[in-house]
Design a protein around this nucleic acid. Structure first.
Length: 110
DNA sequence: CACATGACTAAAT
DNA sequence: CATTTAGCCATGT
């Protein structure tokens, strides 16, 4: 249970401020190309993470904030992202391609 | 092993 | 744009 989730959280924590990535990208980096759903699930359990996980920087393949409603509350993804320099419009990240951060590219391919 | 879950993804309707 | 179908996969029962 911890292994996959921890890795997902780990990658999420590596996302630079002002950048975002997708569930699929993280899954791909972890070697589980088709496990985007697990990544999303890991984000769901990010409450169980030992450290804070910037799940708001993780969106779906199109840059859409699919999981915004699953956040603890208080501030929503859009505001968190906006405070980091990532603009969001209608659940859609603006200039997604420009702020997209691919762990495989940035951290290197295993 | 079978079955249910889920913050995914892609394609089709 | 909303909904459906279907593939995919780790985890828990």
């Amino acid at each position: 249970m911890d292994n996959f989730f921890e890795k997902a959280w780990e990658v999420a924590c590596l996302i630079p401020v002002g950048r975002v990535t997708s569930y699929g990208a993280i899954a791909r980096y972890l070697g589980a190309v088709r496990s985007a759903r697990m990544v999303g699930w890991a984000m769901n359990n990010c409450s169980a993470a030992k450290v804070q996980v910037p799940a708001h920087r993780v969106v779906n393949a199109r840059g859409v904030l699919t999981g915004k409603h699953h956040f603890p509350g208080n501030y929503v993804m859009e505001e968190l992202l906006a405070s980091e320099g990532v603009l969001v419009k209608d659940n859609q990240i603006v200039d997604f391609e420009k702020v997209f951060w691919d762990p495989v590219e940035e951290l290197g391919i295993h």
